[in-house]
Each structure stands twice: as structure tokens, then as C-alpha cells.
Design a protein around this nucleic acid. Structure first.
Lengths: 162, 162
DNA sequence: CAATCTGATTGCAATTTGCAAGCAGTTGAT
DNA sequence: ATCAACTGCTTGCAAATTGCAATCAGATTG
């Protein structure tokens, strides 16, 4: 079957799953960008992922239970991709990545707003966001707080000011 | 010169720097494993990095200010690699990676101990560890708390119990 | 029935990876 | 003084991965 693992170190195993240039981009777009279909991920990707790479990454993420897929009732070829509990729990990791990137890389100010807000919100905000994602992607009861609305509002405010 | 960035998104830019299978492994070994020389990184690597890949990654990490290098006075061919302030600030990111990996990948119990302790310690422990790394790698005054000693003790206790 | 949209696949060149061997200089023991 | 071991690092090469453009068959829409 597939190759064995390089080691049993948690950091290494996480890297084996997500340590490439595209997997986390796809998950980010599903998580923060609300992309649920192949075409949305392909065409509305800021970074311009190639279709074969997207197909491959979706396959791998599905195989590793980081995404799930169901048929879209409105179109017999469409699939709807959803986050899973493991990928929802990547929120703190992505928040830290955003926070680090904002400080140490040449980010675009508008795109950095969300990272800044998410860092300032801290673990309480991350938990609220995870609850919201569980409602959207896993059918859990909707929480009171909508972090995605907060992020969107902050992003649009930043856009308007620029 | 070099290629332009794919986008100004903080997560993407972090991925462009660190989104490969080896860069964070090298930084992890310097940070948690106390590796400071090329040979230490090459031979004591749990995952078995190839020498040409290690050479390339060290070059890239140096170029991106995630490592620094000075000559070793004890040996005219040796270099000593040190973390920089940006890479020291990766501690929270690596802590989150370890915490996620411990929950969602088949980690080795002994190797998971440090991740568990680091997660339980939370931001206070991370800050203390960063201060310790600043002392070791940047020549800052030594802090009172030694997180590396705590991690080592926990690791060896786990080894002894197994 | 024709145009468009769907999620992909294919062919191909370029890059990256993994593996083994090798290299010039340095050190330390005899 | 000699020699084996060690230093960081390069080279050659096959295999795998990536990036890009074109293409595909089925589904839907006008």
C-alpha cells in the first residue's frame, strides 16, 4: 500500500499530511472563504491553483478525513465539500499561521485584517469560530456568535477605508 | 531575481516560506533537539533527511532570516546555526502543530509527551520557552524558568515508564 | 439542439526529491 | 609525520511531484 511514516513525531506527522504548498490553501478557502465546490476553489482561488493539483489535493484531503463530500442535489455532477471535525480543529493552527505571517512576511494590509482580528480574539474567538463551522459543515446547532460575520465586516471595512 | 508571491495572504506567505516537508523539521530539531551543526541535523534526524536537501534547506532558511550561522571557533569547518527572532516566534505555531498532530495522527506515545506538555502549559509556557531560546540563540539574559528542562524531564520520565 | 457549465483527466516539460557516492579541508590519535 | 575519522557540502542520477494548457464526457440551460 502506501509508504510508512517517517517518524511518530506529532509535528512530523502533521507535516506529512499538510506540509505542502496547497493543502492548507484549499482548507483555508473552505474555512474562511466559504468555498464548497470544485469550481469555486479553482476559479476564486487568490493563488491560482491548477486543476490537476486541486483534484489531487481534494482526493488526498478526502482520504485523510480532512474533508468530506456529498453530491449536490441541484446538479448531478456537483459535489459539496465540507470540513470535518479534524479540519475544524485546525482553526488554532491557521490562526497562528496568520498571526506569524502578518508579522514576518510582506502581507497585503486588507488580507492581513482577518489574521489580526483572529489573533486579537484569541482562543475564545477560535472556539466560537469552530462552533460556527460545526454548525455549517457538520449540522450542529447554530451558535449565538458569528465569527465569520465579524471577519467579513472587518474585511469590508478595511476595503472601504482603502 | 526570484519569483513573485502567489498572494499577499498571511497564511499563503507563511506557506511559501515553510510549506514543505523539511523546513519545519529542521527548525524543530534546532529548537527542541538542540541541534546546532550540520552533522547533528543530518545524522540525529529522526526522519532521515538527505544531505543535499538539508544543505538546500539551511541555505533557504538562512536567506529568509529563519536561521543564522556563525563559524565555530573550535573547528574551522564547522558552522553553528542559531534561531532568529522570527523563528523563535514560531513556537506557538509548532505547539499548535504538535497539539493537532497528537490528536489526529498516529503518534508515538513517547514523542507525543512533549507536545502534550507544551499544549497543557499554554501561552505562558510558550513565552517562557521563547525567552529561554532567546537566551540560548540570541544571547539574551537567561530566564528563571527552563522549559527545555521541563520537556526533557517529562520525556525521560515517559521513556523510563515504557 | 447548441452553448455553457460541471468535475475532473491527460500530455508534457520543469522542478523537486531521495539516495549514494564523492570531495577538499580539518582534526586528533599514534 | 601519518593516517583514519570527521567537517560541511556537492555531484550524478533516477523517480516522483508540480505547473501549465488542452481536453473530456456528462449535465444543464437557453
Amino acid at each position: 500500500m502506501s509508504h510508512p511514516h517517517r517518524s511518530g513525531c506529532p509535528i512530523n506527522l502533521t507535516l506529512e499530511l499538510l506540509g505542502d504548498r496547497w493543502s492548507l490553501i484549499v482548507l483555508r478557502d473552505v474555512m474562511f472563504g466559504g468555498r464548497r465546490h470544485y469550481r469555486e476553489l479553482l476559479n476564486q482561488s487568490e493563488e491560482g491553483i491548477a486543476s490537476n493539483v486541486l483534484a489531487d489535493r481534494l482526493k488526498r484531503l478526502l482520504a485523510n478525513d480532512l474533508l468530506s463530500r456529498v453530491d449536490d442535489p441541484s446538479h448531478k455532477q456537483k459535489g459539496v465539500y465540507s470540513l470535518t471535525e479534524p479540519s475544524i480543529q485546525l482553526v488554532p493552527l491557521l490562526a497562528q499561521m496568520g498571526a506569524w505571517g502578518r508579522r514576518h512576511t510582506p502581507t497585503t494590509p486588507e488580507l492581513a485584517i482577518r489574521a489580526e482580528l483572529l489573533e486579537a480574539g484569541g482562543p475564545a474567538m477560535w472556539e466560537a469560530f469552530m462552533d460556527e463551522l460545526r454548525a455549517i459543515h457538520l449540522g450542529a446547532p447554530p451558535p449565538a456568535r458569528s465569527v465569520s460575520a465579524e471577519l467579513r465586516a472587518a474585511f469590508e471595512k478595511a476595503l472601504a477605508e482603502a
